[in-house]
Design a protein around this nucleic acid. Structure first.
Lengths: 250, 250
DNA sequence: CGGGACTTTGAGCAAATTCAACCATTGTGG
DNA sequence: CCACAATGGTTGAATTTGCTCAAAGTCCCG
């Protein structure tokens, strides 16, 4: 069965959660212009800083679980997080990867709609939902920003549906790489040797494939000189145009 | 190639668009409690009515096209609409079906993120985006409602990713039927013999399958006495429990 | 009653999966 | 310091699910 997920031994979510409250006041935040905080002025930022805590999770820790009451919302400031849903028999679909600047905590009737796990060591800004909602009353700009954010995510979700429903394995991998490159660029990070912080099975569960197919497709693209794999989990797009065409469905 | 879409001759979007402005003032709207308008009181509803127009499209007409400037937003009041995206070679992914009460017009940087086409004859409430945005300034409740709406759609999009990436054809069809039943019920419509206003190829493009596989799967479920097909494009869930189990990934 | 579009069924095929073995890297304990 | 276990990644062979191509059947609607 594809996408089967061996539940790894989890010593409990908070076991290695480090609370580093108030070390990073928002005004010094280096991902502010990437995040929803970019619309806030200094006084509003101060009020936000009052309710925020900076927390860290080691790689593979669970940040939040589907179905739990959504009392805490997060903003990624460092590292990579994956969002996923499980079927009863363990099949897993990863619905997204989050990088610095990305917002976390889509809820449905105040319960998380998915689970989230740290891919690498991560640092997050944590907001109590109630207090954030109260703050929103006074900050229509922030509310607008959240709506714009949700719209962007919806558009991305639809692109992902096209990928999952209609693209071949080659096209899926190419789309994935192109997408990572764009997002890395947006964060001001190198976009040509692209960093792949996640493993093959995470990629597989994100693209609706198996690890074997992901691996085979990488080697196929490698032998066709479209990409090269470099040490440190880096992928170089040797032929970015070919990647673009494949990603678009060529 | 699966999902190939023969572009049907289109005589132009507005050719058969009927403008029936102001015939339905919002206060008499029979889908108000299903839509984003449910949070508005009488005075606010009146202001909304001032900027809304009621428009109709015949089946198969294009309501809006991906990439166009998003100057108009809609709310479905009657009929069924499908949202879709195309790849360059014609492969198509339907990203959603909209029924009465559903909101239409997710945009990215003020351009539509997808195309929308009438499945049946439909009637819609149409809002000019700018004027609606201006109205939002005075109606924080409506803005909150739009955000909640976007959250719901995001959760639904993630469920669809699970379906597309990890479910079998049988499970996809079962999930689809279960989902239609829930939504019909929510609208106060019969949920057991379920109406299927869309054709096999729309279902296929929604579930990431081909029409042949959709058809085969229906007959398979029929011979297993899990469903029966009734005249008028109705599907009866003869064994709702089996449908539920299949939909959940059993 | 006839025509066209949609749906169903059939036969063969192909892309991706499954199952299994092997390889590479890394971290650990003797 | 090196052997070796563990983990993750790659490769191979056989299988399977769903697709492609083709034809026949249905259902509207005029």
């Amino acid at each position: 069965m594809s996408g089967a997920h061996k539940p790894s031994l989890d010593l409990g979510r908070t076991a290695r959660e480090l609370r580093v409250d108030q070390i990073h006041p928002c005004s010094a935040c280096d991902v502010r212009q990437l995040s929803i905080c970019d619309v806030l002025g200094a006084p509003e930022l101060r009020r936000l800083a009052d309710i925020v805590a900076t927390v860290s999770f080691a790689a593979h820790r669970t940040v939040l679980s589907e179905g739990e009451p959504a009392e805490l919302l997060y903003n990624v400031t460092l590292g990579t997080v994956k969002l996923y849903k499980l079927l009863a028999d363990g099949r897993r679909q990863i619905t997204g990867f989050l990088f610095p600047g990305d917002f976390l905590g889509i809820a449905l009737e105040h319960h998380y709609a998915y689970s989230a796990e740290a891919v690498t060591d991560v640092t997050l800004c944590r907001f109590p939902r109630r207090r954030l909602e109260r703050l929103l009353e006074d900050m229509p700009k922030l509310e607008k920003r959240l709506l714009a954010n949700a719209s962007n995510e919806l558009a991305a979700a639809q692109d992902q549906m096209v990928l999952l429903g209609r693209k071949t394995a080659r096209e899926k991998i190419a789309s994935f790489l192109a997408n990572l490159a764009v997002r890395a660029e947006r964060r001001g990070q190198p976009s040509n040797p692209i960093a792949l912080p996640m493993g093959r099975s995470d990629i597989a569960d994100y693209l609706g494939l198996t690890t074997e197919t992901v691996s085979r497709t990488f080697t196929q693209l490698k032998t066709q000189r479209i990409i090269t794999l470099e040490p440190g989990n880096l992928v170089r797009l040797a032929d970015p145009l070919a990647i673009e065409e494949l990603a678009a469905g060529g």
